[in-house]
Computed example of a mutant assay.
Amino acid sequence: MHRCDLHLLIDSRSLGCDAEGPHLHVIRRQNTNGAWSKSRKPWVMPVDFLVVQSADQHALERHEILDEVGSDFLLVNLFRPPYGHPVSPEAIGELCEALSTRAGLGRRVGPRICRHAMAINGVDAGGTLDEVQALLGQKSPESPRPYLHPARSGLRAAIERVPSLRELNEVGPR
């Protein structure tokens, strides 16, 4: 992803973009770091205030360390050489694993698990499968299903919603 792909303004029309709110344009292209989008078609992913804050923080750190030297890539190496060069997919995985260890999660977390968590959180928040599918950039309606792993508490809540025979008898025949 390039810095020009990230539109953090509430109204991006001044950038010549008609997508609503803060968002990221996901575009498949050959990159020097070996990263590429799975989706062959460009798509727009809305982002929340945490992504906006993180992007702002990264831009500040980037400016302090590089003084705007480096590539147009959105994510560049700031903490190890080659400084200012695009972060490789392997480095993103290493960063996720280091952060999961630092957070004391008890297991290694990588980008794929983050995708699973996003899908699950989207459904838990009331999102539909087609919304989760769009947020993951997948074209098949069945694509999000492998990412969804219901929590035990969710299964308990689902079974509690089913009326018992006693409750059905109290209501009477339908």
Rank of each mutant, 00 (worst) to 15 (best):
M1A: 10
R3S: 11
D5S: 01
R13F: 02
S14C: 08
L15S: 08
L15E: 09
G16N: 00
A19T: 04
P22H: 03
V26N: 03
I27E: 04
R28F: 05
R28K: 07
R29K: 11
Q30C: 14
T32R: 14
N33E: 00
G34A: 03
A35R: 06
W36N: 14
S37D: 11
K41I: 13
P46S: 10
V47G: 02
V47F: 04
D48R: 07
F49R: 15
F49S: 15
L50Q: 11
L50M: 13
V52T: 05
Q53E: 11
S54Y: 07
A55I: 02
D56S: 11
Q57N: 11
A59E: 05
H63S: 06
I65M: 02
D67P: 02
V69C: 14
D72E: 04
F73Y: 13
L75H: 11
N77S: 01
P81V: 12
V87T: 02
V87P: 01
S88H: 03
S88P: 01
A91V: 07
E94R: 13
A98Y: 03
L99T: 13
L99R: 13
S100W: 04
T101Q: 13
T101I: 14
R102C: 13
A103H: 09
A103T: 08
G104Q: 08
R108S: 12
V109Y: 05
G110N: 02
P111I: 12
I113W: 09
I113Y: 12
H116A: 11
A117K: 10
M118P: 07
M118E: 08
A119I: 03
A119H: 04
A119M: 02
V123H: 06
V123S: 06
D124G: 09
G127K: 04
T128W: 02
T128R: 03
L129S: 08
D130Y: 13
E131W: 08
L135H: 10
G137I: 05
G137C: 03
Q138T: 10
P141W: 07
S143T: 07
P144M: 14
R145C: 15
P146I: 08
L148C: 05
H149V: 12
H149E: 11
A151Y: 14
G154A: 06
L155I: 12
R156C: 10
A158Y: 07
I159T: 15
I159E: 15
E160Y: 09
P163A: 03
S164G: 01
L165D: 09
R166W: 15
N169K: 15
N169A: 15
E170M: 11
V171I: 09
V171E: 06
G172Q: 00
P173N: 14
R174A: 14
